[in-house]
Every structure is written in structure tokens, then in C-alpha cells.
């Protein structure tokens, strides 16, 4: 009895000694993973130099930069560089345009890209599948400048395809597309979907192809039709990809595709009320002024709005389903 007790006590001591040894788990971990940490160092240094050091440049947005004094010694001027963004009623127009366009793009691109991806998945012949995949991707690879002229070929007032061929067939009078702003919300949305849906579709298609076919087999045995398979297997299984892609797009909701809003309307002044967005406004405002303080102010404003929106939407997603959230 005694011996067992003393043995137990000895064990206790031993254990507590071990525990003391292990009390510095950080050091132990450090030692154990030393090679890995060393391997991380170059990457971290790179990340720091490339992604974090330049953030010091954010101060430019609050300075009246004078190169004779140098950036650090230039005068602080508070939020004066931001004023021009909110100066006129245009501030409301560009904010509204940017947000509404991007929300529309995100929603429609998602629906159409997933739709095409599901259809492409059903094409079983290998050659045909490759062919269709390439076809939907090609618009994404075309430069916006060229897209602008493709649009002009369609919409040109005197020689455009729509005014010359389509509208007469329907018995409608020609429309002067480039001087009536009201048509442009529709035109820009169509152009954007035509150009970007293919790219997103390829990403969703990759996710769909990754789904284990056994799910479908099981569902077929249980008597589920195609529609059921899509809504109950495909969509739920690619949900994480959809969420991540959408969250990433929401993060850039306050940035707009400069080419789309500048090149496609051919920089036509008459259309500004429906085609001016934050990026084109800043470009027009500063092209003659060349003030780096004001341009950094615009950039900072956009990133902060984007950052807040990502945090918010990620919070909403994580409330509903922890696994789908980005972080």
C-alpha cells in the first residue's frame, strides 16, 4: 500500500517535472519547427516589403506634396485632398453609378456564369465541351479598347448594325445611342456579362467537375431528376466557391472596370450621367492636375469602403454558415 503510494507520488513528481519542462511550449515549438520558420522568412520579408511597407505611402493622401521639400517634410493638410470627391452633386452620381453597376454585375454574372457552367457540365462529348469552353472564354481575353469598337460597330448612329439592320426590321426608328444616357445602364451590363461571365463560368465549372459522381448516382437511385440534382447537389456543393468569388468581388465593389466605363462609351461627354464612376471621375479630374495627393486620396477612399464591405459581408456569411466565410 505504502509502496504504491510512494510510487504514485514519485510518478506525480515526475509528471510535474515534465510539465515544468513543457511549460515553455513556445520555445519547444520554435525548436521543432525551426526549419519551417526559416523557410517562411523570405516570404514574410517579401510580403512586408511588397505589401506592407508601401502602406506608409498612405500618408501622401493627407499631405500637400512638394517635391522640393520631399514627401516626409511636406505639409499635412488633413482631409483637403478628399474634398474634390465630394465637391459636387457628381459625388452622389458617381457613388450611385459605381455601387449599382457593380451590384448588378455581381448578381447577374453569378447567375449566368453558374447557369452556363451547369450547361457546359452536361456536354458529354469531349471535343464539343472543349470547344464551348473556349468560346465562352474568348470575350474575356479581348482588350476593352477593342470591345469599345465592337460596341461602336453595333451602336454607331449612321452605320451601326443595330440602327441599320435590327431596328428597321422591327419597325423602330434609329436611336442615337451615344447621345442618350438612358440606354447605357443596359448596354454596359450586357457588355460586362458578355465579357466576364465566361471567365467566372470556367471557375464554377472546375468546381462542378470536382463533385464526386457517386452523389448523382445515389440521387438517381432515389428518383431525383436533373433539376433536383442541380438544386440539391451541385449548387450546395459549389457554394463555398460561389461565396468566395462573390466576397472577393464585393471587396472591389467601389472600384470599377475603367476600360468598361471609359472605352466602351468612347469617352462621350453626353453619357456621363450614367457612365461616370469613381475611377473615371478621378481620371478626368486629375489628368490635367497630376496631383498625387488627390489621387492617393481617391485610392484610399475606395480601399476603405471595399475593406468595410468585405468585413460586413464576411460577417453576414459567417453568421449563416461558418465554413463558407473567408475568415
Amino acid at each position: 500500500m505504502e509502496t504504491t503510494a510512494s510510487a504514485a507520488a514519485a510518478k506525480q513528481v515526475e509528471r510535474s517535472r515534465e510539465a515544468r519542462k513543457a511549460r515553455s511550449p513556445v520555445l519547444k515549438k520554435l525548436k521543432r519547427f525551426a526549419p519551417l520558420f526559416i523557410m517562411i522568412i523570405p516570404g514574410v520579408i517579401y510580403l512586408f516589403i511588397n505589401n506592407y511597407l508601401p502602406m506608409l505611402g498612405l500618408m501622401i493622401a493627407f499631405k500637400d506634396v512638394n517635391f522640393a521639400k520631399g514627401i516626409l517634410a511636406s505639409d499635412w493638410i488633413g482631409f483637403k485632398n478628399f474634398e474634390y470627391l465630394f465637391k459636387t452633386e457628381d459625388a452622389w452620381i458617381i457613388t450611385r453609378n459605381t455601387l449599382l453597376y457593380n451590384i448588378t454585375f455581381i448578381i447577374l454574372n453569378l447567375i449566368i456564369a453558374v447557369g452556363i457552367a451547369i450547361l457546359l457540365n452536361e456536354v458529354k462529348k469531349k471535343v464539343a465541351a472543349r470547344f464551348y469552353q473556349s468560346i465562352v472564354l474568348i470575350p474575356y481575353l479581348i482588350s476593352m479598347v477593342i470591345v469599345g469598337y465592337l460596341a461602336l460597330a453595333m451602336l454607331s448612329g449612321e452605320t451601326g448594325f443595330i440602327n441599320k439592320q435590327i431596328l428597321p426590321m422591327l419597325g423602330i426608328d434609329p436611336v442615337s445611342w451615344y447621345s442618350e444616357p438612358k440606354h447605357w445602364p443596359v448596354i454596359l451590363v450586357i457588355v460586362n456579362i458578355w465579357k466576364n461571365a465566361g471567365y467566372l463560368c470556367i471557375i464554377y465549372l472546375a468546381a462542378i467537375i470536382g463533385i464526386d459522381p457517386e452523389y448523382y448516382e445515389a440521387a438517381t437511385i432515389d428518383g431525383a431528376g436533373k433539376w433536383r440534382q442541380i438544386t440539391h447537389i451541385m449548387i450546395p456543393l459549389i457554394m463555398p466557391v460561389i461565396t468566395i468569388m462573390t466576397l472577393l468581388q464585393i471587396g472591389r465593389i467601389f472600384y470599377s472596370d475603367f476600360g468598361l466605363f471609359y472605352q466602351v462609351p468612347l469617352n462621350t461627354g453626353e453619357l456621363l450621367s450614367t457612365t461616370n464612376v469613381v475611377d473615371t471621375y478621378v481620371y478626368r479630374a486629375l489628368i490635367n492636375l497630376g496631383d498625387i495627393g488627390m489621387s492617393s486620396a481617391a485610392g484610399l477612399y475606395q480601399s476603405i469602403v471595399g475593406f468595410v464591405l468585405v468585413l460586413l459581408s464576411n460577417y453576414v456569411v459567417s453568421k449563416r454558415n461558418r465554413d463558407n466565410a473567408l475568415f
Binding site: E83, Y84, T88, M294
Partner: peptide, 11 residues
Amino acid sequence: VKTEVAAVQNV
């Protein structure tokens, strides 16, 4: 007046 110049340019 660069704030104003920038705003005027858009108009």
C-alpha cells in the same frame, strides 16, 4: 484651387 479645378474638369 485644385479641388475646384478637379471638380470643374468633370463638368
